[in-house]
Amino acid sequence: MQALGQGFFIGFHLGDDAGRFFHEHSTALLEQLAKVCDNTKRIGLGEKTWLGIGFAPSTLYGVLPELIRHLRSGEPLELELGLSEMTTLQTLKAGRIDIGFGRIRIDDPAIIQTVLTEDRLVAALPAGHPLLAGPISLRQLAKEPFVLYPGNPRPSYADHVIALFESYGVSIQVAQWTNELQTAIGLVGAGIGVTLVPASVQLLHRDDIGFTPLLEDNATSPIILSRRVGDVTPGLNHCLKMIDELLPR
């Protein structure tokens, strides 16, 4: 029986399954801790720059993956990236992230927002659904049970979708709420309902779902960059310059 901190004990014999499990996982944790300590030291000495990036999952089908690849290249600035799925106003203002990629407009004097692009929205439907013969209207789609995401936190992309339908005088009947885009797609494939996704999500190739365009020209969703007013850190400036270079002219 070996003590691991006050009040916590684990018992194992060298060579047994418990011992191997403990050894493998504790070794991995110690290696990760050593890496964190090394990066912290380098950031403190100015040899490396920390940049926290928050993102809504649906933005991973746009410019964000390419941006992350460029930022990780180490040229001309070596960055330590902290990636956080889902970004909120509170995490940005508290400094836990430096830049956020989302789809919701924020009215806050402490935050600067820039619309990077407007994604066309398309309907995702179960394979074989008659509306896949499209294009279709939002009024047609509103008659179908809906899988809506994310349920939390709010406001979110879900509120954007609800408002889009309401602008045409119709409302949707939500059959299922979920927090993840991938889960929503899976539920559509299972026949639970339909959903709206950015057109870039069509890069997913699945046999159980299909996509069809919408007739309405304003059926779009923005990708919005959010950052704090007055933030001029080297990491953020480098990131903004890289975004400017990557966006189509």
Results as ranks from 00 to 15, higher is better:
Leu64Ser: 00
Gln182Glu: 15
Val170Gln: 06
Arg154Phe: 08
Thr178Asp: 11
Arg72Phe: 01
Tyr157Glu: 04
Leu141Ile: 10
Val122Asp: 06
Lys93Thr: 15
Pro248Phe: 01
Asp107His: 09
Leu67Asp: 04
Asp38Thr: 13
Pro57His: 10
Gly74Gln: 00
Gly74Ile: 03
Thr233Lys: 06
Gln182Arg: 14
Pro234Phe: 03
Ile136Asn: 07
Leu225Lys: 11
Gly11Glu: 14
Gln182Val: 08
Gln173Val: 07
Asp16Ser: 13
Met86Leu: 06
Arg120Val: 00
Ile43Lys: 09
Leu60Glu: 05
Thr87Trp: 01
Asp217Asn: 12
Ile209Asp: 08
Pro234His: 05
Thr49Ala: 01
Val63Glu: 02
Gly169Phe: 15
Cys37Asn: 14
Asn179His: 12
Asn237Arg: 07
Glu66Ser: 01
Thr195Lys: 00
Leu116Phe: 02
Gly191Phe: 10
Ala94Trp: 04
Val232Gly: 10
Ser156Ile: 01
Leu77Cys: 12
Lys35Met: 07
Gly19Lys: 04
Tyr149Glu: 02
Lys48Gly: 00
Gly54His: 01
Ala158Lys: 12
Asp231Glu: 13
Leu125Gly: 08
Leu121Glu: 09
Ile106Asp: 03
Ile97Glu: 05
Cys239Arg: 02
Ala190Lys: 03
Leu60Met: 05
Gln6Ala: 10
Ala28Val: 08
Asp217Arg: 07
Leu181Ile: 14
Leu141Gln: 02
Leu214Ala: 11
Pro198Arg: 07
Glu47Gln: 15
Leu71Cys: 11
Gly134Thr: 07
Cys239His: 03
Asp17Phe: 09
Asp231Cys: 14
Val161Asn: 06
Glu47Leu: 13
Arg69Tyr: 00
Ala124Val: 13
Glu118Cys: 02
Asp16Asn: 13
Phe101Met: 06
Gln6Tyr: 09
Val122Glu: 02
Thr88Phe: 03
Ile162Ser: 07
Phe165Gly: 11
Ser84Asn: 07
Gly193Lys: 08
Asn152Gly: 01
Ala163Met: 01
Phe55His: 05
Leu81Arg: 10
